[in-house]
């Protein structure tokens, strides 16, 4: 009897926190189907008689093109992920397998780079991008984001490659494979779970990062989704219906992907952080 009571209390407490976590998202989604005036009057009810798609029509026909922003986000984030995996893959292999002069120093340098917040260099960074004629372009967001993520990726991948057995590489080498064949046919496929975790971490970081997007890109046609959302809110912040539909449009795809890939995502994000 006593055990039964204890379990009940545990489930009640856990359910309360689950509600506090999930209800905000539920609230936004149901309210995105209500007229703005009803959200302000009574946001707690479920839309039945006042159900409407108007907020979505407005979101897609306003002078802000949400679809194009999604495309911008994907272009930026996939480029960052691709570049980080390639650059970090090579560097990690060198750090995991070779003994070279200055290796310890390079590693300490990578750790230090991981510590420091990218916004502490934003002003000089912005000047560099202006000099490189990259200010306002998607590439101007991509390059610093690569720099901001590569050190973390190297730490994760180096740790993983070190644990791989050397014998497979050695036998491939004896069979006459060159270094690039060894990397792409032997090492990288064996490390694919570590690459997947890293890719997820880097993708979410890049997709969700507002700071660089906001500072570098001023043209709303080139804005990734976070920067565009901020623009919409500063212009139409009082239109609750439009706000709710815009927020729903950005969170629902992420939640769907999250539910499909949750084990990889949770592993990727927490493993990444612990190594740091």
């Amino acid at each position: 009897m006593k055990r039964y009571g204890k379990k009940t209390i545990i489930y009640i407490l856990l359910s309360i926190w689950a509600t506090l976590t999930l209800y905000p998202f539920f609230w936004v989604i149901i309210n995105s189907f209500k007229p703005s005036s009803d959200i302000i009057r009574d946001s707690l009810s479920i839309p039945i008689t006042n159900f409407t798609f108007d907020n979505y029509i407005k979101a897609f026909t306003s002078d802000y093109n949400i679809f194009r922003s999604y495309m911008n986000s994907f272009i930026v984030s996939f480029s960052v992920v691709f570049a980080v995996l390639i650059i970090a893959g090579f560097a990690s292999y060198a750090l995991a397998r070779y003994n070279f002069k200055g290796k310890k120093l390079v590693y300490a340098f990578i750790i230090a780079c991981m510590m420091f917040p990218i916004f502490s260099v934003i002003y000089p960074l912005h000047q560099i991008l202006i000099n490189l004629k990259l200010n306002g372009s998607r590439l101007g967001v991509i390059l610093p984001q690569i720099a901001g993520n590569v050190s973390f990726a190297v730490v994760i991948l180096t740790g993983f490659i070190q644990q791989l057995p050397v014998e497979v590489e050695e036998s491939a080498y004896i069979d006459g494979a060159n270094i690039f064949q060894i990397l792409f046919i032997v090492v990288f496929p064996m490390a694919k779970s570590a690459f997947a975790s890293t890719a997820i971490f880097v993708f979410l970081w890049s997709y969700n990062d507002l700071f660089l997007q906001m500072v570098i890109i001023q043209d709303k046609d080139k804005m990734p989704i976070c920067a565009l959302l901020k623009e919409i809110s500063s212009k139409y912040g009082t239109d609750f219906g439009l706000m709710a539909s815009s927020v729903t449009l950005i969170i629902v795809p992420v939640i769907i992907v999250y539910i499909l890939l949750q084990n990889h995502i949770i592993k990727g994000l927490t493993a990444g952080a612990i190594k740091g």
Partner: peptide
Amino acid sequence: AYFIPIVISATA
């Protein structure tokens, strides 16, 4: 459930 807010952008 508890992990969901982490994957959503701070902007949203």
